[in-house]
Design a protein around this nucleic acid. Sequence first.
DNA 1: TAATCTTATATGTTTAAATCATATAATAAA
DNA 2: TTTATTATATGATTTAAACATATAAGATTA
Lengths: 129, 129
Amino acid sequence: MKKQSLKEKLKKKEKACAFSLHRVSRFIQPSLLLFLLKKPSYGYELMENLRKTGFHEESIDIGAVYRTLRSLEKEGFVKSIWQRKKKRRKRIYKITSRGKALLRAWVKRIEERKKALERFIKFYQKRRQ
Amino acid sequence: MKKQSLKEKLKKKEKACAFSLHRVSRFIQPSLLLFLLKKPSYGYELMENLRKTGFHEESIDIGAVYRTLRSLEKEGFVKSIWQRKKKRRKRIYKITSRGKALLRAWVKRIEERKKALERFIKFYQKRRQ
DNA sequence: TAATCTTATATGTTTAAATCATATAATAAA
DNA sequence: TTTATTATATGATTTAAACATATAAGATTA
């Protein structure tokens, strides 16, 4: 169980400083939209992509992935159909034009965020004795 | 009431896409530690610094600032004393060595995070038609 | 001088989402 | 035939962000 051991390691790290440093904080949503921009996909595959790409340093909560997909669909940012033809049934998601617009907004935000992080690091390096 | 109007604007923006894009997500804590690394300070001043530096694009919740300071103190990352000599009583906070270590951990995390955001943006620009 | 604004600290309540846990079921592998 | 993997889903708990309000003293202004 690779997932469990990683979580335990993080938990230890967290206890050492009593403050959680490992929150994902709303990064699942834009990540899913980004993968879906590339090609239609389904929950399980998307979760594996999340693991591989390293947008999240920590283990992915599969429940969060499915819930986020459903809520994105409810708001019209993605659309799903059942695929039952092949060996396994899969709920295939496609990004909509509204979803693409949302992703653009996210990218803008993420660029701003990146700049803020850069400012933070610079500030730190300047003031550090 | 400048604060209020800003919040309302953000609320509208949020409603437009039904997903909140404006969360601060644990950035108050490292920001406070960073300011305190520079010099001892107090809640109100720290909040004003947060506004000015633009680490947070959005309005600062002053309640969160005070609560974060208290919790940092509870864990030994900062230490406070009351200053009553001047016109107003202020609770002056100083960063401790444990706090400095925590900030170092935060900076590492923030650097990682920055890289993740960069990867995200690159990925977006590549796959975008 | 009374009313309002700014500085200053603090906490109560609500809402959102992250985290943890578990359920189901079919196929693949041991 | 038992276990692992693929696949989707939701219940429960915990955390923190967001919103709201309280207090009080000094500064400003009407």
